[in-house]
């Protein structure tokens, strides 16, 4: 892995970071942030649940930047640092059945999915979420993982970064 940027910034006088490096191909950040803003601001799943899944991806995909960023919307919805700290293996003992099902779907997607989830997990998911909500969570997890991998492979992980609360995308 590298914490040294592997590409320069495309924006004069600005350091190479996620937005300034993606700016080499402007259509990519333009279409991504349009999608990401829709996902976070006009989604049908609450921001707290999506943030919990995002933090789980951050840990498993091991994205240093993602692990240290919090989105303001989930904070406002009551997600605490103590809860974030428990999104590790064994989380089922700390979260309720609904959030645990969302986390298990997250683990299924970012693990090594060779098949559909178990019948038990599918039943649990469909007990707590509508099918459109399941798709929203799954697509979100896919985006979290994909952009984390872009960030990591481009060497854009910070060497040192405090926990930082950012405005929720699209706000």
């Amino acid at each position: 892995m590298s914490t040294q940027p592997r590409l320069p910034s495309a924006v004069p006088d600005q350091a190479p970071e996620f937005a300034t490096v993606l700016a080499h191909a402007p259509v990519i950040p333009e279409t991504f942030f349009d999608l990401y803003g829709e996902f976070w601001q006009r989604g049908i799943v609450d921001q707290r649940t999506k943030e919990i899944c995002r933090m789980r991806n951050a840990r498993v995909t091991d994205c240093g930047f993602c692990k240290r960023v919090r989105f303001g919307g989930a904070r406002a919805a009551g997600l605490t640092e103590e809860e974030v700290a428990t999104i590790e293996d064994g989380y089922a003992q700390r979260f309720g059945a609904r959030e645990t099902a969302a986390l298990q779907l997250t683990d299924h997607i970012i693990g090594m999915p060779r098949d559909i989830p178990s019948e038990d997990l599918r039943r649990e998911l469909q007990e707590h979420f509508s099918d459109p909500e399941i798709v929203e969570i799954a697509l979100g997890v896919g985006l979290f993982m994909a952009l984390a991998k872009v960030l990591i492979t481009l060497g854009l992980e910070p060497q040192d970064m405090p926990v930082t609360v950012l405005p929720t995308p699209g706000s």
Partner: peptide, 12 residues
């Protein structure tokens, strides 16, 4: 990265 995601979603 998106192809990787698409595969995972198709399989899931």
């Amino acid at each position: 990265a998106l192809v990787d995601t698409n595969c995972r979603l198709r399989l899931t």
